[in-house]
């Protein structure tokens, strides 16, 4: 594609060809060196991860039990559990997914497929890319003022809804950017073929482009939701609680989430609480893996359908 006329290639530089040093052994050696370097990079990453996980499992596994999942927080480490935090996380993440997925994917489709290339869309694009790098606590401050204070009649103040909205805002840029990348990876020939057959833009996007892009979009969503589930700072800022011993009754209920509970236990002086924190991390990891497994399952289904 980049070579305009293959016949010209090579013929205009005969002198270089004669100077060309084949040095096959050297080139293979370089190849191997690079390969081993990449392996070292993988090994280091895995080693760090394995150390962390083994450490957490060693501290936390003995503490994991049904009681631990089914008890409310307590001053007594052996009686303390994370029922309220677990339910809080599930509620909040449901809100986050329900809000951020349609909004993010919708915005991505609009910007990539429908919006023209003008100064307005370019400004929006720059802003979205910048927003992806804003520290999460800033979103917390925004959420506190907008969702907790201004929109109190709707959200009920320091509630699941406010927390979910705030985290949804936090991950929207990630979803939008990955949606756009996924759509951009769909070959233009597909769109042109659709237009040539008389389909309008909506039909082309809906029938051809979107189904092909869904696996990529879901991958981006997994990454985004994984960030949201572990984020503590914005939720503490909007006033999520630390001690709460009843379950949420609706979207306007006060709540706490797993990372806040873990953070609280880690900073306590008693060693038994530190073991609780490790067990809490395991639970958080399992929830995260379950959530991602669902998304991966969906993605694989779409991948099969699309091919």
């Amino acid at each position: 594609m980049t070579i305009d006329n293959p016949q010209n290639f090579g013929s205009d530089r005969p002198s270089e060809a004669s100077n060309f040093n084949i040095n096959l052994a050297g080139r293979y050696k370089l190849d191997r060196i690079f390969e081993s370097l990449t392996w070292i990079a993988v090994a280091i990453a895995l080693l760090v991860l394995a150390t962390l996980i083994i450490d957490v499992l060693a501290d936390g596994l003995p503490r994991l039990s049904w009681d631990f999942l089914n008890n409310f927080p307590s001053r007594k480490p052996e009686q303390a559990g994370l029922k309220s935090a677990l339910f809080g996380t599930i509620w909040v993440m449901s809100v986050v997914a329900a809000v951020s997925f349609p909004l993010g994917v919708g915005a991505g489709i609009f910007l990539e497929e429908f919006a023209g290339d003008n100064w307005l869309t370019r400004i929006i694009e720059i802003n979205i890319n910048n927003l992806a790098g804003v520290p999460s606590i800033i979103y917390g401050l925004l959420g506190l003022q907008v969702f907790v204070r201004y929109m109190e009649p709707l959200t009920g103040g320091r509630s699941i809804l406010s927390g979910g909205f705030t985290l949804a805002l936090l991950i929207l840029p990630i979803i939008i950017v990955s949606t756009r990348e996924a759509l951009r990876a769909v070959p233009d020939s597909l769109r042109l073929a659709g237009f040539a057959l008389g389909a309008n833009r909506w039909q082309v996007v809906r029938e051809h482009v979107f189904p092909l892009a869904i696996p990529g979009i879901l991958t981006g969503t997994i990454l985004a939701l994984s960030r949201a589930i572990g984020d503590t700072a914005p939720l503490i800022t909007i006033g999520a609680l630390t001690f709460i011993s009843f379950l949420p009754e609706g979207l306007q209920s006060p709540f706490t989430v797993l990372p806040i509970q873990v953070f609280n236990w880690v900073s306590r002086p008693q060693r038994e609480f530190h073991d609780n924190a490790a067990a809490g991390i395991i639970v958080l990891m399992v929830v995260l893996l379950l959530m991602n497994a669902t998304a991966v399952f969906l993605r694989n289904r779409f991948q099969k359908k699309a091919s």
Binding site: A98, G156, E249, G250, L251, Q252, S253
Partner: peptide
């Protein structure tokens, strides 16, 4: 979502 929000409001 909306239902839950509505019922929440009702309780209030």
């Amino acid at each position: 979502l909306t239902l839950a929000a509505c019922s929440g409001g009702g309780g209030e």
